[in-house]
Design a protein around this nucleic acid. Structure first.
Length: 328
DNA sequence: AAAGGCTGCAACCGCATGCCG
DNA sequence: GCGGCATGCGGTTGCAGCCTT
């Protein structure tokens, strides 16, 4: 049996996506849900590779994505997690639910890497405990250790949030009672990969908080308005619905245009698991779009499982081998 | 004001991994 | 257990806009 090429090299369009293409893709996914990407080009008539469709959806069209304007907290998280996990952007992104791995990767390469390099010689060097590019089995075993390290790093990164901690913990307790409670067994957010079509412990809370995105005519209209209202880059590169312009215009853009806004979500009732389409858009094991949810989830993960954390701290001397000495 | 260089972002490419028959 | 397929992931590239000279 001859394996068909991933992308039909002939007749496959490349380059920036147009608003029309985005609309077609979003409409299709609204109807059929993400997945079965191979069928997407054929069924939609999009002259795009299936991978391109998936990428476009994952990085830009998916609801709940925040773009631009990385906060200092996010920067710290990224720096710490990059030091701990290496260039495993998908894993890092799982701690920043509103950010895509591509976004984080770009931000690291364009901002943080340079920042670290200019900030100190040693800081930019990968730590000794950085995951080796060895077999996955080794890596998985190591991951358990790194989880504990990550917790410590996250706690440090989140230290300035102590003022908010009581509220965050209340949120975590109220919104995600199960979030992180089972992480003592090593089930970190980064490692839970089976939640795409299931109810993540966090997903219902997020759905309640922000509601699911429902593609309606109004939303499509808003989307197109957003495109039409912004200058088209490169004679065809649309701004992204998630608010690509937000970097220069302020953080409000992201919520204005993104699909995760509460106003949009209010168009439909908050579903239980298996509700309307896009309910399954939550990243696996991570909350959907709500500004506070990621921190709540992280806080929950960090503090709910504190006993495990302290045990790890006490029993593992490896903490000493993981200096968190970064310029910022 | 114009030209060249630099920066940042969106997208592509190829490999790795997991699932299913 | 094996092979094929679909998807996920990380590295890299291309290009438009911005900045500097």
């Amino acid at each position: 049996m001859v394996r068909p090429p991933c992308c039909d090299k002939e007749g496959v369009k490349k380059g920036p996506w147009t608003p029309e293409e985005d609309l077609v893709l979003v409409s299709y996914i609204q109807e059929h849900g993400p997945g079965n990407w191979r069928a997407v080009p054929a069924r939609t008539g999009l002259m795009r590779c299936s991978k391109s469709c998936r990428l476009r959806w994952t990085n830009y069209l998916r609801p709940g994505i925040k773009r631009g304007n990385f906060t200092e907290q996010e920067e710290k998280l990224i720096v710490h997690l990059q030091a701990l996990l290496g260039n495993r952007w998908a894993a890092i992104a799982s701690y920043l639910p509103e950010r895509t791995d591509n976004d984080i990767k770009n931000y690291w390469n364009t901002h943080l890497k340079r920042k670290l390099q200019s900030g100190g010689d040693g800081a930019a060097k990968p730590p000794a405990h950085r995951p080796p590019s060895s077999s996955k089995g080794q890596w998985e075993r190591r991951l358990q250790t790194d989880i504990n390290l990550a917790r410590r790093a996250l706690r440090e990164a989140l230290t300035p949030l102590d003022d908010l901690k009581p509220q965050l913990q209340r949120d975590a307790a109220a919104d995600a009672p199960g979030a992180g409670a089972g992480t003592g067994g090593g089930d970190s957010p980064a490692s839970s990969s089976s939640g795409a079509s299931q109810c993540s412990p966090l997903a219902p809370a997020a759905a309640v908080a922000a509601g699911p995105y429902v593609l309606t005519a109004e939303n499509i209209s808003r989307m197109l308005d957003g495109w039409a209202g912004r200058k088209v880059r490169g004679g065809g590169t649309p701004g992204t619905p998630g608010g690509a312009e937000s970097a220069s215009t302020g953080s409000s853009d992201a919520s204005e245009v993104s699909y995760g806004g509460a106003a949009v979500a209010s168009a439909a009732p908050a579903p239980a698991c298996g509700g309307p389409v896009f309910e399954y858009e939550a990243k696996p094991g991570v909350p959907t779009s709500h500004q506070q949810m990621p921190l709540s989830a992280i806080e929950s993960w960090l503090f709910d499982d504190d006993s495990h954390f302290h045990h790890a701290v006490q029993s593992a001397s490896l903490l000493d081998a993981a200096p968190m000495d970064y310029p910022f």
